[in-house]
Design a protein around this nucleic acid. Structure first.
Lengths: 337, 337
DNA sequence: TTGAAAGCGCTACCAG
DNA sequence: CTGGTAGCGCTTTCAA
């Protein structure tokens, strides 16, 4: 099941020419005579020669490999992002090294280091929801181009692509406000998460545009576990101003919330709007009334494009590059039939 | 954002010793005096030396990287397999190069070749549902250890791990037979798919054990697209012996089927049993009555373990290894509440 | 038009 | 205990 691979040297030996000639011939270097070029190609073909990439990697100092770190593939948002990444990566001759952090900052750090060791040319990462300390990210950023997507750390001087959740949240709020809801509650994510803060910002903006006042007790943070989400709902329902509509952090949370509301027979009265992390085609029971689409596939494509750009500029520029990509896609509220 | 990396040679130069001494010191080679070993380590630390894996890869002839090819990450079965793979891969210091074939045999071939170029140590693959021609697989198998999982090609002399779908199908049938169904229809997958044939086999075995005769017109193949699945259902319902229960190829198909049956108001009368490819926790409307669990995570773990074994034996054995792993996990029918 | 040689960074073998 | 030295397979000047 294994054969010793043919090398350029072997071809040279058989043809009684030098390795450098072979190398050049294989690359169609004009300085090599057509005749020998042909002979080399023929021999390469015959011997089924395949260049040893690892040697080329060493020589070129690049691996044509990019690392992708996601919190978890189980959240179906990320497979879609990865598909987008893969599409443009392959088109540009890059290959994808995958790692799941499992929402564990230590694993995240370990993955970053492993990928660095493997000399990936760049890394695309969506940080774990428990990552609040960014030293490991900063450290890696010193030596490898990093592009963040979807879950962005609160750092300066980084490249990232994400959805504009502020406007998404505003849209979600407006939808509910239009339906005459005046007391809207929000089950948010971890307080330190960038995207949680964006949601909060949208929440406040929408209220102020409608000349309603912001009541902090109507926004409850959760760690997105089922228990914590339901706990948050309980708190909201116990509020003196009881909300008549809810905004959930994402579809998974929304589903838990709706299931819970149904179980306590509040389903009819309280619509829930959320942020998409599921392919909403799936015929879910406990479906939210509307969801903010975040275009995972597009995010993946964009992130990879950014990385490729950074990689290309790195070759050209000498060091001190101070331009950082901040690509912000517009999210869009989708009503679910 | 980029620094020129420290090499072993640099450390040697600064310490006025040889590179080989440094290399050995770093590896705690006992032949190096404690004193110099310490000095080397200290210097390495100070300079933040990190070994260049690509050089080591070239030298060692292995990359500690394994390729994983799945049809698509969107089918949530595969992310779970990958998680299993990743778990044991990381434990053994391997890293995962990912590729999605998108059910396209040409892309599948392209991915195999790319991974081969990148000199992965081995490949885990679940073939696309349109792959009926195995030349590309055979070719790669010549030079790189291949382990198949879940979707197995009809080839000799391969390693694979899969679920025993025959017994799973028998269980599913028995479940329906116990409920006094005597005319059971099956919406199967592509005829050439190994797993389709296993389902068919289970279908027939169950019937014969119950002393019922097998009626070929009650099994209809589909390509698993929504249209094709619904077409299959229509055919079955139009059969002279109209089935009173159905077995679907997998949950996705089951959902389409149930949705269709509801739309034509047959829902109550026809239970549907399927094979799990969804995390069934998801609160689906149109849920099948029962589903055959296929343990994706476990399959991933086992497949990776097999590969590691093959890899280790390869080092030891000289060529002619004739033992092939065929790991068959038992599937189990799970009733959905 | 071709070849020799240096070197990418590291390991390993063999003398001292 | 330590240091040359010879590669791993390939690219790339620089001479010839």
């Amino acid at each position: 099941m294994e054969k010793k691979p043919v090398t350029i040297k072997e071809i040279a030996r058989r043809l009684n020419i030098s390795v450098s000639a072979v190398s050049k011939a294989l690359h169609d270097d004009p300085s090599i005579g057509l005749r020998t070029r042909m002979r080399v190609k023929a021999m390469a073909e015959e011997l089924k020669y395949e260049p040893n990439q690892t040697a080329i990697f060493l020589q070129k100092g690049r691996t044509n490999t990019i690392g992708v770190i996601v919190p978890s593939l189980v959240e179906s948002f990320f497979p879609q992002v990865i598909s987008g990444i893969e599409e443009v990566a392959n088109k540009h001759n890059y290959v994808v090294l995958l790692g799941q952090s499992m929402e564990d900052p230590e694993r995240e750090q370990m993955l970053l280091e492993t990928m660095k060791k493997h000399r990936v040319d760049g890394i695309l990462i969506s940080i774990s929801k428990n990552t609040f300390q960014y030293d490991h990210l900063r450290k890696v950023k010193e030596s490898i181009p990093l592009v963040f997507f979807d879950r962005i750390p609160d750092m300066k001087e980084i490249h990232y692509v994400a959805c504009n959740l502020v406007s998404g949240t505003v849209q979600a709020m407006n939808y509910l406000l239009q339906q005459k809801h005046r007391v809207i509650g929000m089950v948010n994510g971890p307080e330190k998460l960038f995207s949680s803060r964006e949601r909060l910002e949208g929440f406040r903006q929408a209220l102020s545009k409608s000349r309603l006042k912001y009541d902090p007790s109507l926004v409850v943070n959760s760690d997105l576990s089922k228990e914590s989400v339901i706990q948050a709902v309980k708190e909201l329902l116990a509020n003196k101003r009881k909300p008549t509509a809810l905004i959930a952090f994402h579809d998974n949370a929304a589903i838990e919330i709706i299931e819970y509301l149904k179980s306590i027979r509040k389903d009819k009265s309280i619509p829930v709007v959320s942020f998409a992390n599921l392919p909403m085609s799936s015929h879910t029971m406990f479906k939210p009334a509307a969801s903010v689409e975040q275009y995972p596939y597009l995010q993946g494509q964009k992130a990879m494009e950014v990385l490729i750009d950074v990689l290309n500029n790195k070759e050209t520029d000498q060091g001190a590059n101070t331009a950082f990509y901040k690509i912000i896609l517009d999210s869009r509220l989708v009503l679910l039939k």
